[in-house]
Amino acid sequence: MNTAIYGLLFVVLAPLFGGLLAGVDRRVSARMQSRIGPPLLQPFYDVGKLLQKKTRQVNPVAGPLLLGHVIFMAATGALLLGGTDLIFVAFVFALAALFLVLAAGSANSPYSFTGAERELIVLLASEPFFILMMAGVCKVSGVSTFGDVLAYPQWVAPQLPGILIAFLIVATIKLRKSPFDISTSHHPHQELVSGLTTDMSGRLLAYVEVAHWYESAILCAFMVLLFNRSWPIGLVAFGVAYALEVLVDNSTSRAKWQLVLRSTWAATLVLCGGNVLALFVIGR
């Protein structure tokens, strides 16, 4: 009963959290570029405007697919906090991301399509990370739901150093930060125009934005999971990680997809896989 309320709370509050985070991000980035930057609530203004705009659907399936993208992103968070099995959550998370790829791929524009192809490439490399991460957390704590891991009396993180480092790399992809923003980018000056989102307008683009807010909140929840004994420390850890991402975003150029693929696989297989493998070997 209690956990279901947490799930509902996530659905309602996560967009606020994600939107505000995006607002802080834009302002901090602007400061790093010696600009003042937009108001803190700018992401909300943007989405509000997009909802008022006329929507051009290039393909009738794009709308439902993107709605699915938002719903499944929200569901991922709800299921996580609602006490569902962690591995299952990781799968739903992957499914949510897949909806965006399908929606972008359904548009008949080369930019959107190439963006979808690139997104799929990094998705294939990064989604196993979340499954391995969950496996690691379950192995260390011996329990398999969010609440139980948080109630576990010992720290999970010290036993998962590889996963913590890999988390930073994968989060760069998930948060669409340079150098790994190859499928779409927050600053729209790349060779694929706006990549995945090139053909989405009005309401559809708003869905993508909102889903992205959910995604940020889910990553934050994952961080709390890793720092299980105290959620304020988890939040701080996420804050530090996010600050690092912003710093890296502002001090690197966009990588090419081969490098992205190599580093994601390295993060997933070597760091994360190695970490989980070590747990099983030592734990035996």
């Binding site: 834009r26 602007a30 600009r35 003042i36 930057g37 937009p38 108001p39 700018q42 203004y45 943007d46 051009r56 729209p188 000056h189 125009v193 706006s194 989102t197 090139t198 053909d199 989405m200 307008s201 683009l205």
Partner: peptide, 13 residues
């Protein structure tokens, strides 16, 4: 960008 202006480079946005 202080006023929320973004140069989108994409007519659909």
């Amino acid at each position: 960008e202080r006023f929320g202006v973004v140069n989108t480079g994409n007519p659909k946005h």
